[in-house]
Amino acid sequence: MQALTNRVQVVERKPLSFWEKLYIPAIAKGMFITFSHIFKNKPTINYPEKTRPFSPVFRGLHVLNRDEEGRERCTACGLCAVACPAEAITMEAAERLPGEEGLYREEKYAAKYEINMLRCIFCGLCEEACPKDAIYLSETFAPANYTRKGFIYGKEELLIPDPKTQPEEFAKAKGLTK
């Protein structure tokens, strides 16, 4: 048969010679190979003690951002929900009452903001769609949970800590410190 490419390797199927039939050289060779692997470097990383650095463009768990004074940036415009290809985001808007100016930056805010992490595909389109820079994807991922309900993240889970009262947690969530 004519070979189609010049990369063909013809396998010779001749009967084994006596030396090959003994199998002992082959076994010894195999044993040597496995033995040499004992001294090789292990690629595994001891995860909880040591973490691999995320790439700066990693798209992980969402964070709802606050501004420098600790006010929520989100205005519940719904653009993120529209942009979401997996339809993972739902929200309910509410009007800011007088006296709540320290809590919300705009007159309208998200009373309820939920992301279903089982639906989310972490594409980052919500981040791009947001006009207020209120949502972005952090460098962590959603931890395991026992129930499906546990994967529907509400505002408690998503909101970034207040930079005024909890500056360290805020910095950590922002990824400013390592």
Binding site: T34, F35, H37, I38, K42, T44
Partner: peptide, 10 residues
């Protein structure tokens, strides 16, 4: 584990 370049129980 060490033969397969893993860490084994630790």
């Amino acid at each position: 584990a060490v033969i397969q370049d893993r860490r084994g129980p630790n």
